[in-house]
Amino acid sequence: MSSGSPPPPSETLAPSGLMGPSLQLERCATGIEGLDNILGGGIPRGNMVLVAGSVGTGKTTLSLEFLVRGAERGERSLFISVTEASAKLIQNLSTFEFFRTELVDQGSLVFVDLPVIYERLGLSNEELNAEEIGILIRTIRDLVRTLGVRRLVLDSLTSVCYRIHKEEQIRDFMLRLGEELKEAGCTSVLVSEIGPNPGRYSLHGVEEAIVDGVILLWNARRMGDILRVVQVVKMRGAAHSRAQYVMELTPIGILMAPHLKGGREGGA
């Protein structure tokens, strides 16, 4: 088990293209082939990314695959679950062929239930105050540093934000958490639960302004049929596709294909 902070994100010179050579951040390949293609190699290392979507769009599955693929590459991965018990998540994961329980047994893939942390830290108030938010951030930071975590998922940010009522405190929470994770070289995914037509990507609308990237998932309808659609709305430090793709959750992992438009705006 390694400990201490991993090296800070390095910068590499991207291959020269038609737009000329450019300084590009080191990428953290998600291991989801379609998504890495969309992102031009992966999420810039140390970025904090919001994965936003309504129910049944595949947010948790995408986040879990991101961690499993990382653990397979030797990057310690941490899943912080707020609403669903870790045991149930691991049970669900076992239906995927890309998952091996040894990753959990060996400590490469770590699951933590946030309610347990709340309880141990004595954070029992319905609304967290500034001091308690600070305690929460330091606890996550210490976990990341102690375990040498390179990939982190918080599922969901929305559930945490239900206990942080003031927008400025949410902004502060996210800014400080983002700084701590970036410093540790940890690439993070924060899951955001939104309605089917929310007009924004998070509970309060401030979250998307702070994160480095937003990956939006939604259910598109075509003549009554439902398709899972994914679109990278923003990703700092990466020249990425902004096109829409259809996502399929298969036993071998998430597969993506272009969302067919058939000449219509917004997809057929």
Binding site: R222, M223, D225, I226, L227, V246, E248, T250, P251, I252, L255, M256, A257, P258, H259, L260
Partner: peptide, 20 residues
């Protein structure tokens, strides 16, 4: 696949089986 209208899903299932 749910229906012949889910063309992307057809593409992705073909992809899945070719990989499998």
């Amino acid at each position: 696949v749910d229906s012949p209208r889910a063309l992307e899903e057809i593409m992705l299932r073909v992809e899945y089986l070719l990989r499998k």
